[in-house]
Simulated scan of single mutants.
Amino acid sequence: MEQLVLDLAAPEPPSFANFVPGPNAEALGVLARFAAGAVAETGVVVWGAAGSGKTHLLHAAVAAALAAGRSAIYVADHGVLTATEAEVLARHELVAVDSVDAANADAQGKLFSVFNALRARGRNLLAASSAPPAALPLREDVRTRLGWGLVFEILPLADSDKPAALVAWAQQRGFGLSDDVIRYLLAHGRRDMASLLATLAALDRHSLATKRAITVPLLRDWIQRDFRLER
């Protein structure tokens, strides 16, 4: 039974389909085209506060690029970035680098070289940061190159907009959510959208596996089980 719960709780891989756009619909549309190689710019930067979904979008872009037959790589470890030759990284058609604002001097130098190598080949760099390129604590030439492309601030969904977004997301997956379930989830679950959607996705699988309707008792039972598994 515990293994079944673990299987049901496994998060879905990040994709554009399971990202609730909210005020980020334009950015989501551009990123989908960018991942497919249909945007002329070499680079795109997404920036915003922690929990806004930047890492999700980078993973989603890599997954979409791979699905479209493009080679793509996600880089979160700046040590890996520094240790890998720029020409090797530029063999990929899309390179997604997370947390560029935290890059040290060596990583900044490599990022500069990777950008130039990708640009020379007509390929793409997707970067995520906590601030727009002009405000990043990076070398001027790195900031300049990141700022050459498209820049999008990723805004978190307002609490007042979350109930409607959760209902719409559930409807797309073929199940409904009562007001009571939504209120309980927002009151007792993690409030960032990534965690809320992960809980709903797991709850949907749990509902199908147990042949029980999605109700407050089922949600309460699931949240308690999930909490016990994390301890």
Rank of each mutant, 00 (worst) to 15 (best):
A50L: 06
P14N: 07
V44C: 09
V44L: 07
T199F: 04
L157K: 03
A103L: 15
A86K: 00
A209L: 11
A40G: 10
L157C: 13
W148Q: 10
A198H: 13
R212I: 08
D179Y: 04
T42N: 15
L203C: 04
I182H: 01
E140Y: 08
P156A: 03
D221V: 00
I154L: 14
A127K: 03
A165G: 10
V39S: 00
A201W: 06
A38R: 15
A165L: 11
R205A: 12
A194W: 00
E230D: 11
L208W: 01
N24P: 11
L138H: 00
F175L: 15
D7M: 08
A40M: 01
A165K: 10
G189T: 11
R205P: 07
V39N: 03
R33D: 15
L126Y: 06
A60H: 09
A9D: 06
L66V: 15
E26W: 02
A86T: 00
V46R: 11
A198S: 14
L125E: 08
A117C: 03
D226R: 13
D159Y: 02
E85R: 09
T144H: 03
R145A: 03
D159P: 13
A27Y: 10
T144M: 03
N124I: 00
E153Q: 14
A127H: 04
S71V: 02
L8E: 07
L197D: 10
V100C: 05
L125W: 04
E140D: 15
D180W: 01
H206R: 14
H206A: 15
L166R: 07
Q172R: 15
G48L: 00
S15I: 01
S71E: 12
A67S: 14
A27H: 08
L150W: 07
P21L: 07
S129M: 09
L136C: 01
L197E: 12
G122Q: 12
S71H: 01
H78F: 05
A198K: 06
D159M: 10
A49T: 07
V39E: 13
H59N: 12
H206P: 01
A164P: 02
D159F: 01
